[in-house]
Simulated scan of single mutants.
Amino acid sequence: MRKESEVLEQLIQWAGKHELIRAVILTSSRTNPKAPVDLFSDYDPVLVVTDTEVFAKDDRWLELFGSILTSFKDEFISDGIKHYTRLVLYHDGVKIDFSIWPVELLEQILKRPELPDFLDLGYRVLLDKDGLTKGLKPPTHSAYAISKPTKEEYLGQIQEFWWDVTYVAKSLWRDELFFAKYMLDCSIRFSSLQKMVEWYIGLKNDWAVNPGKYGRWFKRYLDRRTWSELEKTFTGSRIEDNWETLFKTTKLFRRLAIEVGEGLGYTYPHQLDERVSEYLLKVRNLGRDADDFD
């Protein structure tokens, strides 16, 4: 695998010789001092060009950076201006996520009172032939930090959690594993549970850290007990194991929500918790041949 210095030097040399490329800005984790970086960390260069269509219509230029294992491309519109991405994984393990911007898009960003979050997270100008980036504000490296929830947001996530767990219980009773796993491992985990874990981390870190997308750095910020309990919310395909995991999930959510609420001065809805918890137990103990819930 190529070293960072080799990848960046190759990029700078190529862009320097290419007349259409006027600036190159490196973004994301490799420019954020708060982010962990390892050999699999992406390179995220923004190519600021005078003609985006040249790069969008013919992708053969991507092969200049190595033998391509796989790639993905997309296009976006920001401030009414079209721009492109070319995400490329090379055979040697290097992954480069190219963003292709017209000069006009950078000019629009320069007019904003604040940097967009992905630049505020961190950036480094690798090349600027025309001084286009001189007006960019310095990054604060604080974008995506966890925000304190309002009382309404806090109670809303709790309401959502205790509503969604009822679907898990019914699906497990019906032996509908696929849907039960979707609700428990996707809908609940990456919505209300993830949000409550983030708020717990925020509370413990003065609301000044970024836990990464979808809990990427949860282990880094959680205390040993909480991480251990969170690990136990994962399980396999046995119905009985998923029942156990459901109750471990509700126990963890309850503890974190109560602590977050106390830290923010919000009251946890214990009665809602008790009603739904009783319902979950009742469904679990209901015989498979039952035709009445009473």
Rank of each mutant, 00 (worst) to 15 (best):
W199Q: 02
P45G: 07
R30L: 09
A56H: 13
P138G: 07
F234E: 15
S147L: 08
S277P: 00
I239S: 04
L281V: 07
F98E: 09
F76K: 12
L110I: 11
E6C: 00
T140W: 06
K3I: 01
V94E: 07
I239R: 15
R60Q: 12
Y214M: 12
T27A: 10
H141I: 08
W162F: 15
P36W: 03
D206C: 06
L89P: 00
S191G: 14
Q157C: 00
D292T: 06
E114Q: 14
G122N: 13
T50M: 07
H270W: 02
Y200F: 12
L256K: 03
R216L: 14
R220G: 06
I12G: 01
S5T: 15
E152L: 10
Q13S: 14
I81T: 12
R254V: 00
P113C: 06
D185R: 11
F247Q: 13
W61R: 04
D206S: 15
K95I: 01
M183L: 10
I201W: 01
L177P: 07
H141F: 15
D120N: 15
F118N: 04
G287P: 10
E4N: 13
T85D: 12
R225F: 00
T226P: 06
E244A: 13
L26P: 04
R225H: 06
R238H: 10
L106S: 11
D44A: 02
R224I: 04
S67F: 02
M196H: 02
I77M: 05
